[in-house]
Design a protein around this nucleic acid. Structure first.
Lengths: 150, 150
DNA sequence: ATAAATAAAGACAAAAAAGTCTTTTATTTT
DNA sequence: AAAATAAAAGACTTTTTTGTCTTTATTTAT
């Protein structure tokens, strides 16, 4: 009937993968264009453009227009955590919201799964906060991981 | 731009809340109708009907038509875990899927966050599997938790 | 038997997410 | 300056999810 709900939105999945790709290719003066990014991570090009433009507006990635333009990062951007990317694209409901969607859910007026869920969320957030783009740079360069769909 | 992605779908949130309400009101020979359920958990009535009919078809809850009809549970249903409800409505991607949406992601060909993510998923699944409807019955009857939106 | 109550089923509508296309703007190269 | 390249912006389309409405089937009470 419904089926297949994932942790992150498609936009967020593409966003994380694109950021990892840019981190991998980002060296001194190297920029990578949307076409190449989309090809590298196997995502729909115009949708990818929208997501990256959003991330660029929010300062998570740098870009310049024109020939030899494209997206790139400096040392500071490599320290961006997965949590920051997720928050920028999907918001913070995954980390802070009530599992049952109850607005008024809090310590004083908890939903049934409040305490169990809080632990999971905290855990998830901690993991994503502790994981920065640069942590993957080397292993991505060595080809130990893949970023393609299929 | 996008914002506010939650862990479960709306259908799943309503489904869990409705199941908790039925568990709470379900005593010998007591049935509860869709109208009352929707009111109790503050969900859209016709949408609630669709979700419950789906759960009923899948055997997670019992129902009978006609006067004094409605939804109810027996002892066995009270042992249903939150994981079973989530899987029935949202599927198992949350527990088994790749965080970055990569179909080919596995131990041999892992995505960058594969290992970190696996731990979270396992944790989440374990928590939801370990939590059954009957675990909330008493505290719900005592009014210690709430199931309303606002 | 008939009427009333209720879930089941399925068509329909609205909103949100995902994806595409076109035009504009900025930059570089010639 | 002009042409080419690439991101930015925004309108548009499609698909999925959420939500609504109407009709049908089943059960109970009268």
């Amino acid at each position: 009937m419904f089926e297949t709900k994932e942790m992150f939105s498609k936009a967020c999945e593409y966003g994380i993968r694109a950021m990892l790709h840019i981190a991998r290719t980002s060296k001194e003066g190297t920029r990578v264009g949307i076409r190449e990014i989309a090809k590298a991570i196997d995502s729909p090009e115009p949708f990818m453009a929208k997501i990256l433009q959003d991330l660029s507006r929010k300062g998570l990635v740098l870009s310049i227009k024109g020939p030899n333009g494209g997206f790139y990062m400096d040392e500071i951007h490599l320290k961006i955590s997965l949590a920051e990317i997720v928050t920028a694209i999907d918001g913070d409901q995954l980390f802070n919201g009530c599992g049952l969607g109850l607005k008024a859910c809090n310590e004083r007026k908890p939903c049934p799964i409040h305490y169990e869920f809080k632990a999971i969320r905290t855990n998830l957030k901690a993991m994503l906060q502790a994981t920065a783009l640069e942590d993957f740079k080397e292993s991505l360069e060595k080809g130990l991981f893949h970023l393609k769909r299929g």
